[in-house]
């Protein structure tokens, strides 16, 4: 398998379609024959990120690069930024609205889950400018 790149634009207007990009990535990974447990890790991490982009940042862009060694995800948004990354990484901490909570999210598990399911995660954020999250899931089982 050579390097495979795909880009998804995330619609920030409609919460009901949040997750569509992650579903599409899952199908891509399945078609490439990636191990199902690796697919689950990568797509759950991306799904949480995608939900965050819709909830907090009015959408954004996700770039995925799949190589024989890893799944590399870049999530970029032009949202408000994260004032305190350490606080945002705390399980249970959330700034989501009651409306979002009623839809089953905003439990403060998004970023912790993303870290849990990936082998590498880095957050670059600037208040009023946006946030970029880079995540890597190794595809080699070793």
């Amino acid at each position: 398998m050579n390097s495979f790149k795909v880009q998804y634009t995330i619609d920030g207007e409609d919460f009901s379609v949040a997750g569509e990009a992650s579903r599409k990535l899952k199908k891509v990974l399945q078609s490439l024959g990636v191990d199902p447990q690796i697919i689950r890790k990568a797509t759950v991490a991306m799904y949480e990120g995608e939900i965050n982009m819709v909830i907090h940042a009015d959408g954004g862009v996700i770039d995925a690069e799949i190589t024989p060694e890893k799944i590399h995800l870049f999530l970029r948004d032009k949202g408000p930024g994260i004032p305190d990354i350490a606080l945002a990484m705390t399980e249970g901490f959330s700034t989501a609205s009651d409306n979002v909570r009623e839809l089953g999210f905003g439990a403060g598990m998004g970023l912790p889950n993303m870290e849990k399911y990936t082998d590498y995660m880095n957050i670059i954020t600037e208040i009023g400018v946006g946030t970029t999250i880079e995540m890597i899931v190794n595809t080699s089982l070793s």
Binding site: S16, V17, A18, G19, S22, R40, V44, G104
Partner: peptide, 17 residues
């Protein structure tokens, strides 16, 4: 098992196989 009814329930279940 859930009392929540929206498309994210299915997407969540799908991501978790």
């Amino acid at each position: 098992l859930t009392g929540l009814v929206n498309p994210q329930v299915v997407r969540t279940a799908e991501m978790m196989d």
